[in-house]
Write a protein that binds this DNA or RNA. Sequence first.
RNA 1: GUGGUUGUAGCUCAGCUGGUUAGAGCACCGGUUUGUGGUACCGGGGGUCGUGGGUUCGAGCCCCAUCUUCCACCCCA
Length: 447
Amino acid sequence: MQKASLVKGTRDFGPIQVAKKNYIFDTIKKVFKSYGFAPLETPSMEKIETLTGKYGEEGDQLLFRILNNGDILPKAESNFDSNRALKSAISDKGLRYDLTVPFARYTAMNMHALKMPFKRYQIQPVWRADRPQKGRYREFWQCDADTIGTRSLICELECIEMFDKVFSALNLPVVIHLNHRKLLEAIAIHLGFEGEFEAFTVAIDKMDKIGFDGVVKELESKNLDTSKFENAQSLLTTFDFESKQLKDLDETLTSVLATQAIKDLSEIRGYYNQLDNDIVLDTSLARGLSYYTGCIFEVKLKEGGFGSVAAGGRYDDLTEVFGVKDISGIGISFGADRMYDVLEDLNLFPQEMSKMTDVLICPMDKDVFSFALQTARKIRNNTQQSCLVYPKEGKLKKQLDYANALNAQYAIIIGSEEVEKNEVSIKNLNSGEQKNMDLTQLIELLK
RNA sequence: GUGGUUGUAGCUCAGCUGGUUAGAGCACCGGUUUGUGGUACCGGGGGUCGUGGGUUCGAGCCCCAUCUUCCACCCCA
């Protein structure tokens, strides 16, 4: 016999967990649909060359590769000068790392049929060969919405609104962090890091974690000149997302790049009045994925938890590697598994998630089965309630126990007395209240 | 990928410096009550102590390996 076990960093979802997960998916889906996004699904696996080189060196290492079928040994026996060469000889497929790149691939292949701007949403699992931690899985679900084929800043606004709506619908207070890649570049140049943009962003992205002094140390450890960095603290921080702050920032930076970014941000700011959640301009936000070129977002929990529960940004050249130029796009992604964990921790899933049925019918002996089944049929055909007949007679205690385990709202008790009077005994399992009535009254009650 | 950490019944854990048949609470099952649950009482099942080696007269406890968990770094949802 073999011990049953799971692959590291993966998990099962039982009936209640699936209901909870669907609650998250449904909430997100509803918002996506209300903004006119249409569904798309792509295969779990992609050609390895579709995936590699899109997420940087680190990302490539985290790709799950699929071993080729057939006789790989002769190939493997040849001399390869590197792991990389060997890998590509024995594996030409991989599991998708995110949903954005498969979408770019899809777009490139279907340009002829897509009416721009094209808006799609996609809710599917992705895989990363990461070392698992809390809130960090090797298989997890992303919920993406992207708009491509337009540079309109209305899309940025929609992203912000969708973040706001989803988290507000889930009763999960968050802070939406907003930044602009060009603003970040302008700041980098202003602080003397021209040509060292990557190292600069990697360092300042850790601001909230290691603090200002930590960032200085990090930069120095990479032999970067931090002489102009002393006035950076007031520049790399979170600002209220208001026009006054934007104007001040523009005046401090006085560069073309900064002005472009501020213009975008001001326009977006002009499009809305009130959100349920907080939003800040966070100039220390530097999303790692290198394909972003405009606005970038990250949604963080107001209290504790993981790094971020949702993120996104604008990218200009994602389809270019597939031969399709000048398609600007913007997309966001919700991390369903992290959201699941937080909602669980904070006990924010609605009560009915654990309800397996609304009504349990309890037949006392075999003679009443047909009456019980008839009652069930009536309930199913005439009400919205789900209904289940306990498939074995006897022991009311046992049956009521079962009803509790299923979190049912009503138990309908049917014995020979009830059949004789052509009625049922219905018990409200929350209040304990119980009364007898005929089937017409029962349907009326359950409607 | 680097450094650390964890692993005892379904769950949360106890188990003294290695010493006879490994414990508790909760959960589960049965009964008290063969037609009334979620609160009471009585009883019961269930563990090759993550796995594989080793040291020892003897290992849940020590050593090695491996897997798993969680944490930090890296990166990220």
